[in-house]
Simulated assay, not measured.
Amino acid sequence: MPEGHSVHRIARQFDRNFVGRRVSASSPQGRFVEGAATLDGREAESVRAVGKQMFLEFEGDVWLRVHLGMYGAWDFAGEIIVDPTIASANGRMGQTNQRGTVLNADDHDDAIMDAAGENSLSSIGAPRRARVHVRMSEQTTGLADEGEDWPPPVVGQVRLRLLTESTCADLRGPTACELQTPDEVVATIAKLGPDPLVDDPEEGEERFTQVVRRKPTPIGLLLMDQSVVSGIGNVYRAELLYRARLDPHTPGRDVPEETVRQLWRDWSRLLRIGVETGQMMTMDELSPEDWRKAMASRDDRHWVYRRAGLPCRTCGTSIVLEEMGARKLYWCPSCQE
């Protein structure tokens, strides 16, 4: 499931390529025909991400709410303007798990590619514009191919296609894709926990701390509860708990207040790193060589995630894998006792 940094990056891409433009909408799959008809011909006016959900506003007080869930993805094609606030990797758009799209072939020799064909290093520069086809999600695999046809042919089960004169966005497999009124958007967001990139940092910290400190629920479950805090998924949960040296089974009310506050501050920091780099980098104080190594290999970006049975990077104890909240949890029983 895409975690918070991915959704914020996707929202920024919509801001660059759709906001301020009139949009044609259709539902090739046929499961969002009425909604697409309502959106068709309207101008996109704004976009925002809160946790794992994105809200795209259209003229006439109509909002599109999308939650990608476990299998959802956005496929972008056409003339893509890369947001300069998002790290652009040697000419590539740095969306999480984007595969193989090189916008500037001259820069490709300087790229560091990971085992999945993803260039993770960032570069600084002006917005780039290129003809590409790229997928934005967590589970994306395979290469994104540049095409000549416009608009591009529909491939697979596309729930919603949004199209401007030069850019196409295809939505596949979302958990939620619905239209909302402004009041419904407010109500939806009100049910979500604080998001460090949306809420006032101090207010978010207080809200998070107060909720956690009164709950008997294990902290490992609370971090995945989107009504407690927005955007944290399986990877960030495991890594945040390890970085705090916190036993995942500790009831929230038993976690020291300062530790809870530090969890929020650490999440704020890691989320920003994720948005900037497109990667869930959770290891600190790496040498330049180790940083490049980590950007080139997912196995070198995390302390405990997906390291079941391997020695803890700190103490050598075997990392434990268990199920918590119907999701895999990785942790060190020695460092996190």
Rank of each mutant, 00 (worst) to 15 (best):
A25G: 06
A25N: 02
A25V: 03
S26W: 09
S26T: 13
S26G: 12
P28Y: 03
P28G: 06
P28D: 05
Q29N: 14
Q29P: 15
Q29M: 15
G30K: 06
G30A: 01
R31S: 14
R31F: 12
R31T: 15
R31C: 14
V33E: 10
V33G: 08
V33Y: 09
E34M: 11
E34N: 12
G35T: 05
A36Y: 03
A36D: 06
A36G: 07
A36L: 04
A37M: 09
A37H: 09
A37L: 09
T38N: 10
T38Y: 03
T38I: 13
T38S: 12
L39P: 01
L39E: 07
L39K: 05
D40Y: 04
D40V: 04
G41C: 01
G41F: 07
R42V: 01
R42D: 00
E43Y: 08
A44K: 02
E45L: 13
V47N: 08
V47M: 01
V47C: 08
R48Y: 15
R48G: 14
R48V: 15
R48W: 13
R48H: 15
A49W: 06
A49S: 10
V50S: 12
G51D: 04
G51I: 03
G51A: 09
K52S: 02
K52I: 04
K52Y: 07
Q53A: 14
Q53W: 14
M54N: 10
M54Q: 12
M54W: 09
M54G: 11
M54C: 11
M54T: 10
F55E: 11
F55C: 10
F55P: 08
F55L: 11
L56M: 12
L56Y: 08
L56Q: 09
L56W: 08
L56R: 08
L56F: 10
E57W: 09
E57I: 14
E57C: 12
E57A: 15
E57P: 14
F58H: 00
E59A: 07
G60F: 01
G60T: 02
G60S: 06
G60P: 07
G60H: 00
D61E: 10
D61T: 05
D61H: 08
D61F: 04
D61Q: 09
V62R: 01
W63F: 03
L64T: 08
L64C: 05
L64G: 05
L64Y: 00
L64D: 06
R65P: 13
R65Q: 14
R65V: 11
